[in-house]
Nucleic acid binder design. Structure first.
Length: 674
RNA sequence: GGGGUUGUAGCUCAGUCGGUUAGAGUGCCAGCCUGUCACGCUGGAAGUCGCGGGUUCGAGCCCCGUCAGCCCCGCCA
């Protein structure tokens, strides 16, 4: 098809802005054809641009024949420039912003055609692999357009927020140094320095601290970070962080600039949240909610019921009671009729969930219409049964139910029971909220539309790593120990708290930060505690230690996960829905098919090619030797090199498996030939 | 690294106990149609049942392997 040129065509209006007020005006519009409806001698066409949709119309009796012919050739997603007169519709469409009017076409340019799309833009249920393969089409869909628009509003609002507070935005390097602690790095081979690598930043952590030493007291950056770890619904290998660092601050000061930002961001999507947010020490979060990122839309707390089974016939539980606190029996009590009525099948489902979390099973007790039933009833003597019923009644207090409910139990170490019950707490509560008739109970289970922000504070500074057989930093090794726990650094490192805090929203960690160590002594003590010696610390973090020695101010900050935050604001449950070009769970881009192989020339330049083709670095100084490859290949290389002058041999020689020279590259001196 | 789940027409899916020529809706193509807006009506084309192997007289269906998407555990300072 012959295409028309855009030429001097000037758009006069955005499609979604046209109203009855514009009637009689001649307008020029641009966009994509969403759909044509050809009624014979009357043709309708919906024209879409970023801002909306408007109906174009042409009538066989009145329209120019050339224009009609052109219009009949138009298919979905053709790119059009249209000229026409705004007119009131004969039959209006109340479901459309522009439903009162239509454009009577006087001119039409077909700027481009479009093949039939591989999937419809209107349907929700299209396979995600297909959507990701044709992401540029997927992004035409309303929902993704809205999500990316929201994302843009969030970053704008964030920048304005920090600018009003006198923050300065500074960019930090993307090509940086690999850090041994923490996540796996994405590495970038260095061409200039054979065998050496840059790392993409997991976060600009050290740079922003150094900027504090430089005197940029309030820093912000919206920056890309990279972590080469396995993905999840809320985790991508490449993600965006709102990175904040401040000098002369305490924890509350950092929280004090973040909270009003969250209030503003929530307002964009019509949610009212009030600051300050609750502060919950890590220890309590784990005890009550079994999680360091609890979803406080559900208020239920985990309870310790170890004592209840101290004299019980149920060995599993009694053994825990006898373990002097090593192991405990912990439980969740869900009050209400719906909880007491949960079917065996549903309970089996929860048991599967518990097993996936590492539990052996899921002991439960249910008090329904037909009395108390339990997976371990046969082990319960009268006293224990009565005690259990008392607990049910105590947990039903304030609710309309008379003791009905469900209790699920976990036994084991605190870490084990927290994991199981922390997971089931929100799962079961969410399910019950959907079925429970008593409205007071469903708000106890799950305020579906609420935004529950909170801070988790007083994280442990260190944890024992079985893998490394030493203590490692929970947050990062620059986190300040709690001033009250400073002495524990040498005596009981595992008990030492950190001045670290996470911002949690609805069960997601949306941010985390800390007050940093700002004196070289404390930093050295910490490195010593986690088994990083003086020399190693110098090599890896020498620049930081230097900086701390030259007047580093007390400082601290925080980083927010922008993608996750926007995901929650957009009300979607997958981070890919708020990223224009995301990776799959296997860390691939289905659209570009990255990562992909590169040609051998590139590998050789980067000194990465091995096996059949081996790059030897030779030079006059070590004329007699070559490194790498098999002994035979080395021998052949030396033989060939031996026929050269030392000057000629100075360079890189690439050989194939037969020892033939494939490629040479001089490191210095003149180019030589073979 | 491990567990679960899905894969059939361009798309979304159905496909009985293993049994004849694998279906529907939608999209696409053609024709008709003056008030549609998920236009309607008529007709047509469209399949490597993810891929490979096996069992069987016979496999979309059963078995083994493999690839890909999704979810979870480990991992994510």
């Amino acid at each position: 098809m012959k295409l028309d040129r855009l030429g001097d065509f000037q758009r006069t209006h955005r499609n979604g802005d046209l109203r009855l007020d514009h009637a009689g005006q001649t307008v020029r519009l641009l966009g994509w054809c969403r759909r044509v409806r050809n009624l014979g001698s009357l043709i309708f066409l919906d024209l879409r641009d970023r801002w909306g949709l408007v109906q174009l119309v042409a009538n066989e009796e009145t329209a120019d024949p050339d224009l009609l012919a052109k219009l009949k050739a138009v298919r979905s997603e053709f790119v059009l420039a249209a000229e026409g007169v705004v007119a009131e519709r004969e039959s209006k469409n109340p479901n459309m912003a522009t439903g009162d009017i239509e454009i009577r076409l006087t001119g039409l340019r077909i700027l481009n055609t479009a093949a039939p799309l591989p999937f419809p833009l209107e349907d929700e249920g299209v396979g995600e692999d297909l959507r990701l393969t044709y992401r540029f089409l997927d992004l035409r869909r309303d929902k993704l357009q809205r999500n990316l628009l929201l994302r843009s509003e969030v970053t704008n609002l964030t920048r304005n927020h920090f600018r009003e507070l006198d923050f300065i935005e500074i960019e930090t390097p993307i090509l940086t140094k690999s850090t041994p602690e923490g996540a796996r790095d994405y590495l970038v081979p260095s061409r200039m320095h054979p065998g050496e690598f840059f790392a993409l930043p997991q976060s600009p952590q050290l740079f922003k601290q150094l900027l504090q030493v430089s005197g940029f007291e309030r820093y912000i950056q919206i920056c890309r970070c990279f972590r080469d770890e396995d993905l999840r619904a809320d985790r991508q290998p490449e993600f965006t962080q709102i990175d904040v660092e401040m000098s002369f601050v305490r924890q509350e000061d950092v929280q004090g600039v973040i909270e009003p930002l969250m209030v503003k961001l929530a307002k964009i999507v019509g949610k009212e949240v009030t600051a300050p947010f609750p502060r919950l020490p890590y220890r309590n979060a784990m005890e009550w909610y079994g999680s360091d990122k609890p979803d406080l839309r559900c208020g239920l707390k985990i309870q310790d019921v170890t004592g209840l089974f101290a004299a019980s016939g149920f060995n599993l539980f009694r053994a825990a009671a006898d373990s002097q606190g090593q192991r405990r029996v912990r439980a969740l009590f869900f009050p209400g009729e719906a909880a007491g009525l949960l079917s065996r099948k549903q309970l089996d489902g929860y048991q599967e969930q518990a097993k996936q979390m590492g539990a052996g099973g899921l002991p439960y007790a249910k008090w329904g219409k037909d009395g108390l039933s339990s997976s371990f009833k046969k082990f319960l003597d009268e006293g224990a049964e009565a005690a259990l019923k008392d607990l049910f009644r105590a947990n039903a207090e304030g609710a309309s139910a008379g003791g009905e409910g469900l209790a699920v139990f976990a036994v084991g170490t605190d870490a084990q029971t927290s994991k199981v019950l922390g997971d089931l707490r929100t799962k079961i509560a969410t399910d019950l909220a959907a079925t429970e008739k008593d409205p007071t109970l469903s708000t106890l289970f799950h305020h579906k539309h609420a935004y529950a922000f909170l801070w988790i504070t007083d994280f442990p500074l260190l944890e024992w790593s079985e893998e490394h057989q030493r203590f490692v930093a929970c947050h990062h090794p620059f986190t300040s120990p709690h001033p009250d726990d400073m002495d524990l650094l040498e005596t009981d490192p595992g008990a030492c708290r950190a001045v670290a805090y996470d911002l949690v929203l609805n069960g997601y960690e949306v941010g985390g930060g800390s007050i940093r160590i700002h004196d070289a002594d404390t930093q050295s003590r910490l490195f010593r505690t986690i088994g990083i010696g003086e020399a190693e610390a110098r090599t890896k973090f020498g620049f930081l230690l230097d900086a701390l020695a030259f007047g580093a101010p007390p400082h601290g900050g925080l980083a927010l996960g922008l993608d996750r935050l926007v995901m929650l604001l957009a009300g979607v449950d997958n981070i890919r829905e708020v990223i224009a070009f995301p990776k799959t769970a296997q860390a691939r881009c289905l659209m570009t098919d990255a990562p992909g192989p590169v040609d051998e020339r590139q590998l050789r330049e980067l000194h990465l090619l091995q096996d059949t083709k081996q790059t030897y670095r030779v030079g006059a100084v070590f004329f007699e030797s070559a490194e790498g490859g098999s002994p035979e290949l080395r021998g052949q290389a030396l033989q060939q090199i031996g026929q050269m002058t030392p000057r000629q041999a100075q360079g890189l020689v690439t050989l194939d498996a037969q020892g033939q020279i494939l490629d040479t590259q001089t490191l210095s001196g003149p180019t030589f030939e073979f």
